[in-house]
Nucleic acid binder design. Structure first.
Lengths: 241, 241
DNA sequence: CGGTATGTTGACAGTGATCAAGAAAGGTGG
DNA sequence: CCACCTTTCTTGATCACTGTCAACATACCG
């Protein structure tokens, strides 16, 4: 774990983040934790936080094989969970955006590396403490279970994506990203094309060609190098099949 | 949910299954639930079971879109979690073997279909009941969290597999299956080649060719149409990279 | 024993990878 | 603000892995 820089966030920021996380969780599922329980869970979490620590782009937050002492919450930025194979190829299992909790496991060692895809601020929670609190605090247990369940859904959908065509993969990725960031019309890519390629099981050339093709067909336009404008959402959705 | 036949299992069978499930969970992770808590969790689960129901091979247990009223435990057989796309292609996200709990979600509707890959016996647990018990019974909450975490790990590894070569995918699948069934030397395939192909994002022809190639290289032998003998495990592991 | 489902093998085609070159973007120091 | 350098992205030509189509073989089952 290589901590580049240590920054104290304002209490306002923390509450904003945790608020974002729970609001997000609530909207996509039936009543799972009551609102006052959410509040209690939040307060309990805040008292046991460590950090946040600031990471520069492409720095490693944890390596594969590191002990699973901490769970992470993204205060700012985008991170990638990935593995680099012996032949040098890399696969990115998931991107995690602002407000998301990740890195939970019941293993002793992390099975994936976690790296900052952009400059990022990360809050740390000691896993053992989280676990012991969860054992007698139903709200924390529910919070953990919900975060894990949501992550499971996300990875399931991603695994389904990987056996489809390059066009479908890129279209799905862009639509999904626009949904997650909450702006369906304008897609700000926080990661490089290489990161996208490694996430979709494609090469950077194929990603580039696919996006260029979408542009030529009038589905999207480029506002800047990493900002896409959705011109024909219906056609984009059709491309996902 | 189409229940073909209803069979009452012996108490012996039930305890065997739940015993298997917890022994399995225990071996692959650090102390998470104490043993007596495991026992209590088991007993609590047993009192709220429904079924088991018997399903014939290829019958549907739940359809994508069905309400998520129940969570499932496999008493016997192998099931597949899958999705069929508009163009008729099918992808299998995961196979679930005897003793595994699956189908947990925080959504209102199942996002995947669940089908019997072999004749199977399934125990049902009402999700709402499980959830309300979990809110004040730490053991059940831990049980659920652990099952979900384990499933998340499995799907993560699978998504990593899908961006690798056909040879690597098939080799990894066979090795993984031999580990899960607990017999590293003899692989009894409970599912068809078509199922394997749909799981690995390949065609049935490629799966067939790859297995034939392994046989010709002396890595494996065929005892019967669906039973493989591992002759050179080291080479098989090397093929996984 | 015959019929259907499942698996195997070959010939060929296509999607996406690889290799290579160049263009654009971003960052740094003068 | 510009020159310079590095990183990232784009585009083209070619290749290879895996898919497609077709025919046949084998297993399974009433």
């Amino acid at each position: 774990m290589s901590n580049i820089n240590l920054v104290r966030p304002t209490t306002f920021q923390l509450h904003k983040i945790l608020g974002t996380a729970s609001a997000h969780a609530k909207s996509s599922s039936p009543a799972f934790i009551l609102d006052d329980e959410q509040e209690q869970a939040k307060r309990a979490l805040l008292t046991m936080r460590r950090g946040p620590i600031r990471y520069r782009r492409n720095n490693t937050i944890v390596c594969e094989g590191d002990p699973t002492d901490y769970v992470f919450l993204i205060v700012d930025g985008t991170v990638r969970s990935c593995r680099t194979f012996h032949d040098g190829t890399r696969s990115i299992v998931a991107f995690h955006l602002i407000g998301e909790l990740f890195g939970w496991t019941d293993k002793l060692k992390h099975s994936l590396s976690v790296e900052a895809a952009t400059d990022a601020m990360i809050l740390f929670f000691k896993r053992s403490v989280l676990l012991s609190i969860a054992s007698h605090e139903g709200k924390i247990a529910s919070f953990l279970l919900k975060a894990t369940t949501k992550e499971l859904h996300r990875v399931q959908e991603h695994s389904l994506l990987l056996s489809r065509s390059a066009k479908c993969r890129v279209a799905s990725f862009l639509v999904d990203l626009s949904m997650r960031t909450g702006n369906p019309k304008c897609i700000e890519l926080p990661m490089s094309h290489q990161d996208i390629a490694d996430h979709l099981g494609l090469t950077i050339e194929t990603v580039s060609r696919t996006i260029t093709a979408m542009q030529r067909s009038g589905l999207i336009a480029r506002a800047s190098s990493r900002t896409l404008i959705v011109l024909n959402r219906a056609a984009l959705l059709r491309m996902m099949n």
